[in-house]
């Protein structure tokens, strides 16, 4: 066990965990940030997507020891009042069915739009291909990203 100081959502968190513990489980079990989801554990489904210095990463395969002073953003910290343009678009388009994958979808979409505010359809498909939605809300995910791209400042 070792002590880690993590920069998450603009705050400093302490976690006493083993070095190989994936960030996903530190967030969920140690810090009570359960918005980031477990789906596969092998970076195949995208439910655990968070931002590492603004880039979308799969937290289920990211060991806590590799994070250092890099800045983590989770769904809880995407916007102070849950009003990030992507979150607003998700509500407006009414994307979720069961909703379990949606935090990961939103984090992937937000990372895409940060880098590329006006993505083409193909760019959206490529950026989102790592996020599985078992309910099949893909059409609405696409639609919400297009809508969010008009709201990004």
């Amino acid at each position: 066990m070792a002590q880690y100081n993590l920069q998450i959502n603009g705050r400093s968190y302490e976690a006493d965990v083993e070095a190989d513990t994936p960030l996903l489980w530190v967030l969920r079990d140690n810090l009570g940030l359960v918005g980031t989801k477990f789906g596969c554990g092998i970076a195949q489904c995208g439910a655990c997507t968070v931002h590492l210095n603004g880039n979308a990463v799969r937290s289920c395969t990211l060991p806590v020891s590799a994070i250092g002073t890099n800045k983590i953003t989770t769904i809880e910290g995407l916007a102070p009042n849950g009003d990030h343009p992507v979150q607003e678009a998700w509500d407006e388009v009414d994307v979720p069915q069961c909703g379990y994958c949606q935090a990961g979808q939103i984090m992937s979409a937000a990372a895409l739009l940060n880098k590329n505010p006006k993505p083409t359809a193909a760019q959206i498909d490529n950026a989102m291909n790592g996020n599985i939605c078992r309910c099949g809300t893909y059409h609405r995910v696409r639609e919400a990203i297009v809508l969010a791209s008009t709201k990004m400042k």
Partner: peptide
């Protein structure tokens, strides 16, 4: 009419809702 999911606010902000989130 088209009515938005009543759990949207919780789902899109990552609030605990699911069994795996229960503590």
């Amino acid at each position: 009419t088209a009515v938005r999911n009543v759990d949207n606010p919780e789902m899109i902000t990552g609030k605990p809702l699911y069994g795996l989130d229960f503590y």
